[in-house]
Design a protein around this nucleic acid. Structure first.
Lengths: 224, 224
DNA sequence: AAAATTTTTTAGCCCAAACTAAAACTTGAG
DNA sequence: CTCAAGTTTTAGTTTGGGCTAAAAAATTTT
């Protein structure tokens, strides 16, 4: 249907659209996709011709209905494959991105539906990111960052905001994964770092503000 | 490492090399890959430059050691994915070829080794074709065709020689799959069709010579 | 408001991978 | 042994997808 390059571009536009309102700039896309600005301009012209995006020179680009549908589906495929790779093949959460990046471009829709069923219709990927369903609807996830939690609060880790292998491996070393429960013991005013106590292990550890901004959490008392 | 097109070409050369000795012709490759001869010539020049094949004008092409390695690995990937698609996702044997054709080009070697382990190191794919191991060694499979079996002999189906969806679906309708056991009741001299009795069900049915040439079998009494 | 800077686009190039049409080479029949 | 038929290669074109260098537009600074 569409080429891998086009699909990657649609996905990048979707990602940047979610960061902030309004059109996405050529430069931001170029940075996101690790390409030069002229290459992006060219790609946007093509996407525009195919009615996947509306592109105005010197203004920016936005996805059309169809473009949004395609991009959402890509995210769905990417994250389902990530679940497969970790859950079934035993890969670590810092190893799966590149492979999923390739797997997501395999088109056959029936393949994805079967994979989804095989995996038990997961709602979140190994990093806690929501997986849109076949109709393109996204499950909701708490958007609170650990860095904004008040002292004394108890929370559960529900996702990461920084997907870099370096951060994920650091979390592994600290023994922090999805579902980890912790209490914020103290927040250091000086550098905004936080001292937390892991509820399962009882250990205490320090997290820099940068690390704390990398974790999505939900209050522990709440519902689930 | 290599492009999908290059890989497809290597795989096609390997396939045709196995059919008969000596170099593979441009025309045969063009037919196999559904491309025009000039496109193939061009591709062979590129493969030759990359030392994946030795190509002499107007003579033909042969794989180098490296080319053979890459092609064998592709077959390995293709067939492992076919096992996954049928065994784990529940696809039928006539549905998996196209998907595997895409999946085989995903490079990550660790992925394939994990998949192999996950599937329990299968030696044969859903069509009974041998799967080379990580070292490129092929398990052996009986090469006898049902069409060459004498009357009265009892055999087990171990593979198909014709991979077309039409043939595979026909076999499904007849209730013949891998492992099916049958006795050749009679071979009609007129058109070389065979009457066989399915040992599990007791039913008898007629198979044209064309169908009988599509089935690999092994004698029932033997070893396994 | 003009100038300087940054961003974006245009123009022109390159490569892979396909194609068609035409030329060149092989082969097989008489 | 020649020549017609078949096969293969060469030549030239197209499209997608990338690049750099230079021009143009937008934005920011003075």
């Amino acid at each position: 249907m569409y080429t891998s390059s086009e699909e990657n571009c649609l996905k990048a536009i979707l990602k940047l659209s979610k960061k902030e309102e309004g059109p996405v700039s050529t430069g931001a896309l170029a940075a996101e996709m690790q390409m030069t600005a002229p290459s992006v301009t060219d790609m946007l012209r093509r996407l525009s011709e195919k009615r996947l995006a509306t592109y105005e020179k010197y203004y920016g680009v936005q996805l059309t209905e169809e473009g949004l549908r395609v991009a959402t589906n890509l995210v769905r495929r990417h994250r389902l494959w990530e679940v497969f790779l970790t859950q079934q093949l035993g890969f670590q959460w810092d190893e799966v991105h590149e492979m999923a990046e390739q797997l997501e471009h395999i088109p056959h829709p029936e393949l994805i539906e079967r994979l989804d069923a095989f995996l038990g219709y997961p709602q979140f990927d190994p990093h806690g990111d929501p997986i849109p369903n076949a109709q393109g609807q996204w499950p909701s996830r708490p958007e609170q960052l650990l860095s904004s939690v008040a002292s004394g609060q108890r929370v559960r880790v529900v996702g990461v905001n920084d997907h870099s292998a370096a951060f994920l491996q650091y979390l592994d070393r600290l023994g922090i994964g999805l579902g980890a429960q912790m209490e914020v013991v103290e927040c250091i005013a000086f550098d905004l770092s936080v001292r937390v106590r892991l509820l399962e292990q009882g250990r205490e550890l320090m997290l820099s503000e940068k690390a704390a901004r990398g974790l999505f959490v939900e209050p522990l008392s709440s519902g689930c």
